[in-house]
């Protein structure tokens, strides 16, 4: 048997690693795991590259238990991200890189800088400002964009994206309802996470019920569950 036959294609092992990491984050949020550490997620699988890829894909979401639940972050956890960015460097300087990738990368750097206590990070990317959907964008494409940057839906941040979310709560709600009716619970969950940060969600959307619903629909998808877990935690914190 050749090596080619024995190894699963990288995409498959990456997906497995991403799902495993997402499931860990979900456990950290739902109280089933009080010992969540980012650094524990590297060196478990035979394919270290896949584990690093998973951290690259989830980005800030892998750090969410520290950011939202206030768990102490250790030097090891941050060091892992140095390895991630070395193996998978940012492509933000390329013209073809999408605004979603630019923003996600910028936000990861901001969060890492914040966690190390090194003060303010780099400025909000000008290119993102120009390329991101603006106020005049219809609610459908705008809400899809917001879903794609749901990793930024965390409390305490004031960026153009966060300001747009708070100005267009009704459009977030429309986008979430649209996603569910189109059979896309993942997008609905991601918009639910943005909505969990807003004080003026239209009550008839039934955000609590919507999150429960997408949680059940996405019970086999750890990435949907991650979005729901963060959103439900934010709602709980907001209520107390």
């Amino acid at each position: 048997m050749s090596r080619l036959d024995a190894d699963p294609p990288p995409r498959l092992s990456y997906t497995t690693a991403v799902d495993a990491l997402a499931a860990s984050v979900v456990r950290a949020f739902r109280g089933a795991d009080d010992t969540y550490r980012v650094s524990d997620h590297v060196g478990l699988l035979p394919d270290r590259r896949a584990e690093l890829a998973a951290l690259r894909v989830l980005g800030v979401d892998a750090l969410a238990p520290y950011l939202v639940r206030g768990r102490p972050v250790l030097a090891d956890d941050l060091a892992v991200f140095d390895e991630v960015t070395t193996v998978f460097p940012s492509d933000s300087t390329r013209v073809t890189t999408s605004v979603v990738r630019r923003l996600r990368h910028w936000f990861l750097e901001e969060v890492l800088t914040d966690l190390t206590g090194a003060g303010k990070g780099s400025a909000y990317p000008r290119s993102a400002d120009q390329l991101a959907p603006n106020e005049g964008t219809p609610w459908q494409p705008w809400s899809v964009f917001m879903a794609q940057v749901s990793t930024m839906a965390l409390p305490g941040w004031v960026t153009p994206v966060h300001l747009a979310a708070s100005r267009r709560t009704e459009d977030l709600a429309r986008g979430a309802a649209r996603a569910l009716l189109r059979g896309d619970p993942y997008t609905a969950a991601r918009l639910g996470r943005w909505l969990a940060l807003q004080p003026d969600v239209p009550p008839e959307l039934g955000l609590t019920g919507l999150l429960e619903h997408v949680d059940l629909l996405g019970s086999r998808d750890p990435r949907t569950q991650l979005e729901v877990a963060v959103a439900q935690h934010l709602l709980e914190v907001g209520r107390s």
Binding site: A177, L181, P203, E204, L205, G206, G209, L210, H213
Partner: peptide, 8 residues
């Protein structure tokens, strides 16, 4: 009843 607009 102002039902959830996605429960349709």
């Amino acid at each position: 009843n102002a039902s959830e607009p996605w429960a349709l």
